[in-house]
Amino acid sequence: MSTNTAMVEKYRNNFLKEVEANVEEGEWVKMCMQCGVCAGSCPLGNAWEHPPQEIFMMIRAGKREDVLTSDSMWMCTSCYNCIVRCPRELPITHIMHGLAHYAKRLGIQPKGNPTQWFSEVFWNNMMKKGRVNELKLGLSMYFKDGFVSGIKESLKNAKLGMNMQKTKRMAPMEFFGGHGVKNPGDLQKIIKKAQELEAARIEEHGK
């Protein structure tokens, strides 16, 4: 039985309770008063399928599938405008990330979502040496849709690249290895321990 079906079994129809138990800051969802200030404040609101107000309403209405497979939460850029403005002081940004995280944990997050893909590339890039290799990060963005489109994309930005080199904004030698923290292996150990602790905590408390 997958984690997802196990959760469905456990909470039956009560998605609100599931969210409260498993999503970071999820206990705040019930406090939303549906004023819509968050939806109106979101600078990317138009790009979302469901603005936060709607997400909260869907959670209460038990629309589990629609919420967790939605790419809306993945569109949040953490500008914190909604948190600042919410009259009920809900940590909306955190709830959005909590929902996204929970969906990924259950393995039902939307597939092919670019922000999600970028997050993973960023994480893996950073984990290698403890610092982000900007050149490689940029190149992996260009080549994400294959070799040919990657070359085209690179040539398009060739002039920009030359200029960045001239002003020492980009070091081409970074492509070979690049700089990092002193002992990346120790960092990886630290992160691994943290992930173990988190997994244990989720196992015990749900979040």
Binding site: K30, M33, R60
Partner: peptide, 14 residues
Amino acid sequence: FYRSGQQKGVVFTK
């Protein structure tokens, strides 16, 4: 009082 109702888990649906 409204907030207290929400805290107690009363669901409000518009």
